[in-house]
Design a protein around this nucleic acid. Sequence first.
DNA 1: GATGAATGAGCTTTCATTCAT
DNA 2: AATGAATGAAAGCTCATTCAT
Lengths: 197, 197, 197, 197
Amino acid sequence: MKITDKKQEKKNQIIQSSLELFSKKGFYNTTIPDIAKELSMSVGNMYNYFKSKDILAKEIISFISIYLGNKLKAINELDISTEEKTRKIIEIYFKTAKLRPEIIDYFLRIFLSNREVFKDGCEGMICVNEFVTEIMIYFEEGVKAGDLRDQDFFSAFGLFMGYLGGMVFLKGEKVLPNDLDNYIDDVSYNIYKALSV
Amino acid sequence: MKITDKKQEKKNQIIQSSLELFSKKGFYNTTIPDIAKELSMSVGNMYNYFKSKDILAKEIISFISIYLGNKLKAINELDISTEEKTRKIIEIYFKTAKLRPEIIDYFLRIFLSNREVFKDGCEGMICVNEFVTEIMIYFEEGVKAGDLRDQDFFSAFGLFMGYLGGMVFLKGEKVLPNDLDNYIDDVSYNIYKALSV
Amino acid sequence: MKITDKKQEKKNQIIQSSLELFSKKGFYNTTIPDIAKELSMSVGNMYNYFKSKDILAKEIISFISIYLGNKLKAINELDISTEEKTRKIIEIYFKTAKLRPEIIDYFLRIFLSNREVFKDGCEGMICVNEFVTEIMIYFEEGVKAGDLRDQDFFSAFGLFMGYLGGMVFLKGEKVLPNDLDNYIDDVSYNIYKALSV
Amino acid sequence: MKITDKKQEKKNQIIQSSLELFSKKGFYNTTIPDIAKELSMSVGNMYNYFKSKDILAKEIISFISIYLGNKLKAINELDISTEEKTRKIIEIYFKTAKLRPEIIDYFLRIFLSNREVFKDGCEGMICVNEFVTEIMIYFEEGVKAGDLRDQDFFSAFGLFMGYLGGMVFLKGEKVLPNDLDNYIDDVSYNIYKALSV
DNA sequence: GATGAATGAGCTTTCATTCAT
DNA sequence: AATGAATGAAAGCTCATTCAT
């Protein structure tokens, strides 16, 4: 339907703009008027697309989960070794952090930290399901292929995601002396060394 | 001085209470009246001890940095192998997450995520200097002893801290099927495997 | 005209639905979108039938006045004693309160209480003219017949209508232990006793 | 305590002013800023005295109930005939409607009509308990004295209060040709005639 | 006639901070 | 040092009404 498409497109615009603003200024320091102004639309009209600020925040994280999930899915479907997959995941994560920093920032600083906002509807990993699923697939296939040690998934997941998140945090804090790209070798080596058999 | 001591003691009380409240409810959902009520003191009097909410938040993170830094320092001063030190650091981190969850939560969810609050005065790692320093000492001594690979410090730091933070996050999300204690073996193994020569 | 008939029919539908909603939720808690949704029509189209929410409210009270006025007219035209008419009026009022509570509720809680809404166009009793007129006829004929005392009309009117409204209020508050029907005897007796010569 | 007295006095001022404004303009057309301005105080400070607009509304009706209850109590305690008491109650009601019209208006137009506001905490007659109790006492003593017929209390209550409310409504609508005082004789006569044995 | 996106003023409520006492 | 009333800016959200299609 034409109409639905148009409405969905506008929703996407709102998601993009508010994703950027939330990431840059934080959830509580970004107001609905801020977002509306960014989009040159009225405050009231915002509410025709998202019934509340919280719901908007939840739709953003879903968008991100799907976005990153798709990237990972593409990697998972490649016919390459687990070691190469590992590196590619790190590359795409760091690349996203560089080219669309708001996405990783939102994940780390908005979603993970403001749990009260996501309490209803995003319990556990529900709203990042697509993303987590792909990591799970990567891990299980690696184990099946005999490349990765068969350990508790969460232990591996925590290592992988915690590490990557940690590096992006350090970059964000301007504490890293070099660009994230320069850490791809180290990080890949460390992670694969830790996880491999 | 007696007077100064008394004042410092009260400041410490405020730090403890607000640390708990910030961790539990988040920075923006904890009000100064909330904290004052918790301590049975008046709102106005709070400001005799901390000139602003932001300054209070910064003093809390300094307190935490010193608290954790001291724990790590004690480990660094032990005459044990790097591998044993690695494990002990993880143990103390998980133990703190269990016994005083507000401390790790504050670090992860308040300090790391609300950068706007800490922007002035806590740039980079300034306010967690004591803590980071001990990790640095751990790492450098491990390298000097020939146990750890001589890689970029931040790459190692990101792995260590990101991983531990990630595990606590997962625990907080009730996503981990077991207690954190049960992951000490895995995590120790993974980290040491990744960092060792 | 066909067209006009159709339009009038739709207006009637709107009046019915909004009458119910206003009565149930109050004037200010019922929105135009609420009414539109109830009728499965668009908000904008509502305004093709009623130029404003206030005007809609006024048309509703006119509808009610005519509705009740007709009921009373039928009673007035009966060839029965004043005492019997008195009872029949009470019966019809209570019956309406039971079968179409929204009508009496609207009269008592929307019309009488939100005077600012009806200020322009419904001054005094203008918009309930049909209804009041029949009460007036009942009273004057009762006096002429020598059954009712010849007192100030408003004094009698206040007694009659205030009493009935009061009973419906009490019923609405769930304060009455019995159904309204059970009060018909008492109320009839009291009113006739008060008004008769 | 001095402090408590001062706070209570301010609460009373707020009650007085908002009582007037609510009565004059209606509950939904009177804003907190309106009330604050009337009292030359800040909006925020209003909330130091009443946690919400609804709670303010409820405290007002309690105030009114006590106010009117006390008036009735004084009458009930007089050593006069039931007929004289009846008249005195009507007198005080009409006098209040004349001298402090906001009180009766609030009762009729705010309390009775905006049930959603009073739903929680003022179910049934809870918040007008003092007032209703005195009417009950009047009635029961009248019955005991052999002056009033022993009928269902609510039937008598509806007559009494409905009638008085109705007359004040008519006066408010400028529909009464004369002052309320001029109706005291008629109303007293009608009510006593209806209720007496 | 019908649609529903768009407007924007306005509402209730919150809260860091100040200041008279 | 201690109190808590007072401030006032700003937030999230609502809704009658309009208007392009």
